[in-house]
Structure formats: C-alpha cells, structure tokens
Nucleic acid binder design. Sequence first.
RNA 1: UGGGGGAUCGUCUAAUGGCAGGACCGCAGACUCUGAAUCUGCUUAUCUAGGUUCGAAUCCUAGUCCCCCAGCCA
Length: 760
Amino acid sequence: MTQSVSPARRSNFLTDIIDADLAAGRHTKVVTRFPPEPNGYLHIGHSKSILLNFGLAEQYHGVCHLRMDDTNPVAEDIDYVRSIQHDVEWLGGKWDGEVRFASDYFPRMYELAERLVQEGKAYVDSQDVEEMRKNRGDFGRHGVNSQYRERSIAENLDLLRRMKAGEFADGSHVLRAKIDMTHPNILMRDPLIYRIRHAHHHRSGDTWCIYPMYDYAHPLEDAIEGITHSICTLEFETNRELYDWFLDQTGPWQTRPRQYEFARLALGYTVMSKRKLLQLVQDKRVSGWDDPRMPTVAGMRRRGVTPEALRDFADRIGVAKNNSLVDIGKLEFSIRQDLEKQCPRALAVLKPLTVTLTNWPDDMVQQLDLPWWPNDQSKGTRKVPFSKHLYIDRDDFSADPPADWRRLAVGREVRLQGAYFVRCDGVERNPQGEVTGLRCSVDLHSRGGEAQDGRQPAATLHWVDARHSLAAEVRLYDRLFSVELPDGEGDFLQHLNSDSLQLVQARIEPALAEGPERVQFVRVGYFFRDAKDSQPGAPVWNQTISLKDSWTKTAQPARGAKAKAAAPATQPAAPATDWAALVAGNPILQALQTRYNLEVSALGRLAHDPARLAFFAAAVEVASDGPLTLRLVQNDLAGALAGAAISSLPFDAKAFGRVVADIAAGKLSPGSAKQLLPAWVKRGGDADSLVAELGLGAGVQGDALSEALANVLHAHAAEVARYRQGEIKLLAVLLGILMRQAKGCDPQAARSALLAQLQS
RNA sequence: UGGGGGAUCGUCUAAUGGCAGGACCGCAGACUCUGAAUCUGCUUAUCUAGGUUCGAAUCCUAGUCCCCCAGCCA
C-alpha cells in the first residue's frame, strides 16, 4: 500500500501531449483526476484508468485528485464511496489532499447556471420527456426549437430559482443550454444542464432538489480543481465539444482543462459494465462484488492478485486510442510472474490418493526440514511430517500410462519432493475397479530426495502425510464466462461458465495452519487464504491462478489460434472517376489543362475544392511550371497545412508561385521545398529569408558533396560494412544522413555518388 | 442517413519521411528435486488502390472495414 503507482518512465500519446504542453509553457504543473461515480465497485478497467491518472501525475511530479462524481443521487451510495477509496488506496493511488466530491461544488455550479441564464445562454424548458426526445431530432434529422426557447431572461431566472426552491415536481422543467437545435452533434442540440430530482443525496442531504447533468458538471469540476489534463474514455469523444463549450461560456478559468480520450480496457471472457456486474451480484450468480471470479478490484484482491500484478499488466497493455480486446492470457501472465517471485512454496494435495509405504515402520514419523523457497534455502524452512501413510495427487498416478508419462505407475519410481524415492509395487481397487490406493516401497537411503547411487527419477511429486496433514477447502476458479465476448449477442448470462467455481476438499501440510497467506502449492498453482470464509480449523484457500501447464495442454487445442477471417486479397478497386470528362465539363479546369498540359486525374481533384483551385491558378501564373505547381499544391502544401484551410495561409499564392519557380529553375531542391513548407506555413514571412535561415538554398554539390560523403562514410563505417554484406536497406539510412549534412543537395546526385562509393 | 474516432505480427503496443522494434501467445532446444520458473533460438504484421519522394506505416487522393453518439445516466 505504500508502493508508488509506477516510477518507470512511460510513453504514450498522452505523455506526448503533456510534453508539448510543458514545453510550450501552457502548464507548469500537471494535475489529473480520477472521477468515479459512487454507484458501483471499481473493476480492472478502472484500475487501468487509476494507474494512468495517478501514474501520469507522478511521472510529471504533479498531483492527481480523487473525486467522487456524485451528481445523481438516485444511483449513488456512501458504501460505494468507501469501497472506491479503499480500492484506489490498495492500488497505490495517492491522491492530493482530501477525497473531493462534485456535490461540494453544487453552489458554484448553480451560480454559473444563473450567469448563463442572465447572459441569455440558457433557458428553462417545460416540454415533457417525450416531446423533448422527439424535438431533438436524430442522426438524419435536425432538431426543432422548443416552444419555451424564447422565454425572457427574467422569466427563466424566476423559473430556475423556483426549480431550485423545490416548487416544481420532478420532470416538470429542466434548464437547457441555448446552443443550436440543428447542430450535427446531437449533444450540442440544447443539452440539459439541470434536472429536478427530489431525492436525498448521500452527502448534500436534502439541500438540493435540482442536480446538474454530467456534461455541465464535469468540465466545471475539472476547472474548479485546476485540472490540466482531463483523461476519460473514448465514448466521451463526442462530449468534448460540449465540454469545451461550457468552459468557454463560464470562464475565464485560471487553468483551462482539456479533455483527452483513451481506449478503455476490454478483456476477454468477462464483462466490464457496472450494470452487468451489478446484475451478477443481485441475481446471486456470484457471492458478491468481491467474489474472486469478479473482475472487480475487490474480487481480484480476495482471489490473491496483487497491486503489483495489476500495475505490471497496465504497463504491458499500454495506452492508446485503438478499440482493443486484451487477451486474458496477458493478465494471467502478469499475475503468475508476480506471484512466482513473491510466494513461498508449500505442499497440498487437491485430489488425495492414498499411498502406503510397505517397508516403512508402522509408527515412525519423521519431521523433515523443507525450505519455503527451494531455490533459496536461506529464506527459512518448516517442518513437514512424513510417515507410512501419505497422499499424492490422483493425477500423478496412471494405471495405464501413456508413452510420455513421467509420473508414477506400477513398477516406476518417483521422488516425493524433499523426502524419499518411492516405487509403486501395486494398486488397490474397489469393487468398481477404481484405484483406491497405492502400495509403494521407499528407498530408505534417499532421505532428502537424493539417492545414494545418484540415480534420477523422471518426476518429482508433491505429497502430504495422511494423518498429520490438515483438511482444507480449496476453491478453484475458472473464467466466469465460457465465450470470449459475452457481451456479444443475446443475454450475457447465457454465456456464464457453469464450472467457474470448483470446491475441493484438499489436504494441506500442517505448517499452513499459521504460515504465509499467499503461497504456491507446488506443482499446482498460487493460492491465497480466504480471510472472509476461513474458520479456525477449517481453512479456505482460493486459487489465484494455476501454474502454467505445458504437459496436459498438448492434448487440448491450442488457445488463441483463431483463424484469420478469410478476406479477399485485394479490395475491389474504387469505382473509377472519369477525370477527363470532369475536366472537360469544367471551363476553368479545361483552360488550365490546355495551357499547362496537366494530368487530368491530378487536376480533376481540384474540382471539389474551389479555394485550392483558385490558389493553384494564381500560383501557376507566377511559376509557369504547371505539373510541378500542381504536385506541390496537392501534396506538400496540403501536408504542411495538416487539415487547415488554405485561406489560413500566412502567404499568398503569388509568393508560393515564386518558390515553385525557384524549384523549377533548380535554385531550390524539391527536398528543400519539403522542409521549407511546414516552417513557412507556421511562421509566414518571406520565403527567401526562411530558405537562407534554414540553410536550404545553398545546394551542396561538387567537391563539397564529395567531402560530405567521405565524412559520412567514415563516421558510419558499421553501416557501410552492413550494406556491403548485403543489407541494401542501409542505403536509405546512409543517404538520409548524407542529405542532412549536405543540405539542399540534389538527391539524385547524392544517391549516385553514394552508390558509387559503396560499390567501389 | 449526420457527427466524432480508429485501422501495424494471432493479441497488446512502439517507430513523429531513413534499419518495422518490444511484450504476450505459439514452436524448438537447454536446464531443472515443480512437465513451473530460468536461459537460448525461431515463426508471424503496416486495411486496399493510386500518387508525391532518392526513400512512405508515416505526407496527399479515393475507397474499405470497425467503434462511439439520438438518457431528465455517467
């Protein structure tokens, strides 16, 4: 609980953004937040978000707030607040200051709502739910204005105050932002700000009977707290426009938060929505929120998963914007790796099979000293009793062993870990013919597990003493659902794995009565003592995860070997546009085509973009070289614009045309032009001086080029050698280095000079 | 149908015009008092089609596929 979230430097698209913000001086300190709604338990998807937000804050020496987003009193509960706090803490999240509550900001939010009304940016609507839905329109249809949209400011203010005073029934009025009912983003069609709810709030009590909506409350909460980077999941991308709108209308804010979205965690063979998890709990499909099969933080904790494992998992899956489904095997790997390092080893037999040592004295009991850590004897030992009657696991004996069987069978010898070599001489069977016990002889000179003649058995088995071992309930868990995507079609409950819990009456070594709570049962798996259900004398152990098993698995079909969907090798080509006809049908294009001898397909594309066409026409007037101008406008300039409108350019078409003319005349290489354009677009000004400043115009050639080439070859001898050994891709690398040194050189000349040197 | 996002090994994720890298999974071998762990090696990817460039996963154009949005939930 004292560990930090992650000291390791991590890099993803969010750190790129933060780096840029810090570098540009937009922020001097990073403030993030984790804002759960207290209406359910946290799950592993939240843990990704927690680790991200707290991790980012720590990485940048900033802070992270824990804030309960409690704006809807009907769903929320104080018990959830407690569990969330506990889980975040357990994961290692150290929040700045006290836990915060959105409800503490209700007064401020209300003030700002009155301000919006005063400024004519919000109004009280009195349509009912049905009407409002109908008038909102849909994806293909604009919304229409409410008949109440033009109420006077005075009336709106009066109504809002009476809403707040509790004069109206739930649902009779709402406060809405006055934006645009025809906005293509439906969220912007006069979104709701406040709704009436005569409900008791777990924190503010009965003070309020109007409660703010998420889209209004959340940006304000962030701004009030001075959050710099408000990180949420992808489904809120559409909400960002509204987030910005509310902040812009309620500002100015000292720190202006920005919202960024990442892909939430989706895991195979489980469900992640709070609604579905709640249903599993309410329908008693599981024992509770902390059932060890649940993907909740509480469930995983009870199962024996550690925060370190979850942190490792989060680091491995990374943070990005792709919709992804993470293989559950990845989580299992992180759990195993973590437990492998931190679990002492103990002996437990899950499916006991009696072994009688025929040549062992009836009453002799030996107390063997076995190390908790077989690979590190210095970490202590415990006493393990050994006598005439033992248990081994049923799965470790075969009456009819397959060819590659290495364990016990009649006539074969194995080692009992840390104890003796035993040989199976015979089996006892019940009337049904089932094996009920084994008769074995022990090599009395192999105490400690080493035979005097140095022979090595094919296998080492785990075991416990029959009389001196303890009975224990062991709970084995499998994935909760039998299909990878239970959310898919139909009711997710029908995909529940009926064998997800298996109760086993096991025998465990006596030292476990008091020993460590988290152990590896040798050759079985990692187990965690269940603190809730264990009773004195009746211990319960939860299987956190089994050991990897590369032996029994060979008999089963390989996991994760999904056949790639058979897709056609190539997509059908897009319907071809008849560019020639398009150009012929447009007098302006036709004239340009004739005058400058342009490719119709390249020219035709300008038909869709009049601003670009006008720019081109003006530029080519100056540059004369039509094809070159067109290429530069269509590719390089468009790239430098990065989606911005051509009208936002800080230079005009004529200036651009002069640069093109320089390129055509050989005064500037195309490569240099490519470097020039982004800088020019960004800074504007005079192209010639920018060329000089960037050192692009010089055009290194002749002796200077040869000299640069010699330097490069000398400084990168290793790459040269690799090229000569056949790694021809190194040509591009070396050429790149050369081109950066010999600024403005002709690429063709540089390439052939380099090639000549490399091949000599 | 409108808007907003996303496409890189089987899976997750890097590469910010210059050697497609890492991890999981899988396969093979070594080692082993856990058929575990550990160690070594190997297989496998830029959605499609054009274009620009000496050089494209990356820039341009057109397409294809996937996800999200029409709660007085968050």
